[in-house]
């Protein structure tokens, strides 16, 4: 463990970024995706990150999740500073402390739904906690489809399997990148409801990138980005308040 700040506030923080700068390319072709932003994600909270295309929301998610590196600044998951980790330690950190839900291609086609759910644990060579596994699986509501391969599941079911996979290893934090982006509104509602429930009932921490105000309204808190900087925040949003805020920021 790195000797980080151990104030009361950091105990509440699942992940944080300090002065995060991310520049792609060099010279004239250089594009600044993150312009020195700082943000905290609280434990047990469902945070949505919103912003127009090119605002840096996906870059932010990738950097906090340890999938990409900042050009400068620092990222912490819990008390661990990611910038100091080698690939192997970073991989282990993702395995132990982070869960992922991507927009598409979340599942390994050769594994059954159940095997996909326990994949991170299996990779780590750990046994799932039976009671917890059952809780997660029950919440996902796949029933007898657990032994099916991903190709035999609907898009909504696939995303719920992905969510269950993210939950089953009890990570410190789950990152979701447009998880409902490819789903119809009913399936999207089911998935987002499930995520909301995971935070409320199971105490999970979730950070979700989305551009959909409906999806964002499920969150406890919304962070708005533009041009690589945090430009606004909204607590306990509703669809209307999100739209208002977007209009306000856009105008």
């Amino acid at each position: 463990m790195t000797a980080g700040m151990s104030t009361a506030s950091t105990l509440q923080t699942a992940a944080r970024v300090r002065d995060g700068v991310k520049v792609y390319g060099t010279g004239h072709a250089a594009v600044t995706a993150l312009a020195g932003l700082s943000v905290d994600f609280q434990r047990g909270e469902f945070t949505a990150i919103m912003g127009p295309s090119g605002s840096g929301k996906s870059t932010l998610l990738h950097c906090v999740a340890g999938l990409d590196e900042l050009t400068s600044g620092s990222v912490f998951i819990g008390e661990t500073e990611l910038g100091l980790l080698k690939d192997r330690d970073l991989t282990l950190l993702r395995r132990e402390k982070v869960g992922f839900i991507f927009q598409a291609f979340n599942l390994i086609p050769t594994l059954s739904a159940a095997e996909n759910i326990t994949l991170p644990l299996d990779i780590a060579g750990r046994k799932p906690d039976d009671a917890w596994y059952r809780t997660v699986v029950d919440t996902v509501g796949l029933g007898d489809r657990l032994t099916h391969r991903p190709t035999e599941l609907s898009g909504g079911q696939q995303q719920r399997v992905a969510a269950a996979r993210a939950l089953v290893s009890r990570p410190e934090i789950i990152f979701a990148d447009e998880p409902s982006g490819n789903l119809d509104s009913t399936s999207a509602g089911e998935l987002l409801g499930f995520m909301e429930q995971a935070v409320k009932d199971l105490g999970q921490t979730i950070v979700m990138v989305t551009h959909d105000p409906v999806a964002a309204s499920y969150a406890d808190r919304i962070v708005f980005l533009a041009d690589g900087e945090v430009v606004g925040e909204l607590r306990d949003p509703t669809q209307d308040s999100v739209l208002d805020k977007m209009k306000q920021l856009g105008g």
Binding site: D87, L92, E96, L119, P120, I123
Partner: peptide, 12 residues
């Protein structure tokens, strides 16, 4: 698929 496996914690 490999990217996904790496993301969920498979080491090189």
């Amino acid at each position: 698929e490999l990217g996904l496996l790496r993301a969920v914690g498979m080491t090189r």
